[in-house]
């Protein structure tokens, strides 16, 4: 049964990489069921993240957000700060797709704080870029400028000419 769980996970990932997102969802749902049977929260966390990603490409952004929220809860329970940051970043981008910029800002700020704690300058730069865009969408131009300047500073530091 444990091997079946891992295999469903691998199958889901392969279907995802092939662009078969509906089949990826079916496989990852099976993986999730088996992870729950075993009380394997790390596997459960991976399944929720993979499901969230597949729902993004199915255009089901609300469903993706719910899966990323479960990913975030589990990342916190497992005390995995890097995964917590990634889940916040995914939620920020998903709420941007949903044009809910206030919620997007909440999650991008959470991502920014963790990136700073982890001394992850690339993550920090992405958070500032995202925050600048969300504030622009809301017409908060002063805030947008602040984050654009931070993004520029970090991009120069890490040598990201793009």
């Amino acid at each position: 049964r444990a091997a079946q769980g891992r295999t469903y996970g691998n199958l889901g990932n392969t279907q995802y990489l092939l662009g078969n997102f509906q089949n990826a969802v079916l496989a990852h749902e099976q993986r999730l069921l088996i992870a729950k049977e075993f009380g394997d929260r790390a596997a459960e966390r991976r399944a929720y993240c993979n499901l969230g990603n597949a729902y993004i490409f199915l255009g089901q952004f609300e469903v993706a957000a719910e899966h990323y929220k479960r990913t975030l809860q589990l990342a916190r329970q497992l005390r995995d700060r890097a995964v917590e940051a990634q889940a916040c970043y995914s939620l920020g981008n998903t709420y941007t797709l949903l044009q809910d910029y206030e919620r997007a800002i909440d999650y991008h700020l959470k991502h920014l704080v963790i990136a700073q704690d982890l001394r992850d300058r690339i993550g920090e730069g992405r958070a500032c870029w995202s925050l600048g865009n969300a504030h622009t969408a809301l017409g908060n131009h002063e805030q947008a400028l602040h984050f654009a300047e931070k993004h520029l500073e970090i991009s120069k530091e890490i040598g990201d000419r793009n």
């Binding site: 966390r45 865009n133 622009t136």
Partner: peptide, 26 residues
């Protein structure tokens, strides 16, 4: 105040491009 369509947000586009190749491996 939702003036900008999300799909036109370059940071989101970049995230989706990366996401397309990202899987949580067993």
């Amino acid at each position: 105040a939702k003036r900008m369509h999300a799909i036109q947000v370059d940071s989101v586009q970049r995230w989706m491009e990366d996401l397309r190749h990202m899987t949580e491996v067993e």
